[in-house]
């Protein structure tokens, strides 16, 4: 079943198409949720929640942009909503990450390293990094989504970048285009 078939049949409320939709896109959505949530068990719950939202909003998909991007954005906003709902008080030890930079233990492949690095960034910075760099939101949009100021969004992105540099050295990740 092609992507277009899945979309059209889902819009016609075809159950087999919904099953195919979940089968094809659940690994991608799991990746998104892992990037935001970090914990595997909670990420699975978020994938489930995201698919329920996708089912209920499938008629709103206009077929103008990438379908996968649309699904991933729903997963991202679902995770963000959950994080905000929990009112997480964040406790981040920056020096701990700076110390890690001086250690030298693991060597990873590029893709695995990049994903691991994203998942290791502390939560508030990871959220901004994911939303700005991966999803492509602006600082204004992030500020509205997270309920913070634009300046907070910018500073957290800056901190995320510093941590990534430290983690690059730690994991000896070499970026290749």
């Amino acid at each position: 079943m092609t992507e277009t078939d899945i979309i059209q049949k889902c819009k016609a409320y075809d159950k087999t198409a919904f099953k195919e939709l979940v089968k094809v896109y659940s690994p991608a959505l799991m990746s998104v949720c892992m990037r935001y949530i970090g914990d595997r068990h909670e990420a699975e719950d978020m994938v489930q929640e995201s698919f329920i939202r996708i089912f209920n909003n499938i008629l709103k998909y206009q077929e103008t942009g990438s379908f996968k991007s649309w699904l991933c954005r729903i997963a991202a906003t679902t995770c963000l909503k959950e994080i905000r709902k929990k009112h997480l008080i964040l406790d981040v030890d920056i020096n701990e990450y700076e110390e890690l930079a001086s250690e030298d233990f693991i060597m990873l492949t590029d893709e695995a390293g990049i994903i691991k690095i994203i998942e290791e960034i502390p939560l508030p910075y990871r959220l901004v990094f994911n939303l700005y760099v991966i999803e492509g939101y602006t600082h204004q949009e992030i500020a509205e989504m997270m309920g913070v100021g634009e300046s907070t969004s910018r500073s957290q992105l800056s901190r995320a970048r510093k941590m990534i540099q430290a983690l690059f050295i730690k994991y000896k990740v070499q970026l290749t285009a």
């Binding site: 159950k15 919904f18 099953k19 690994p27 990746s31 990037r35 990049i114 994903i115 991966i134």
Partner: peptide
């Protein structure tokens, strides 16, 4: 590079278990 890698990355998930939980919610 981050955007490309993260967008293409997929994490394994138990499909059967997920579908069993989602099936009642299919509209």
């Amino acid at each position: 590079i981050f955007k490309k890698t993260a967008s293409e990355h997929e994490s394994p998930i138990d499909f059967e278990s997920l579908w069993n939980q989602l099936e009642p919610h299919v509209p």
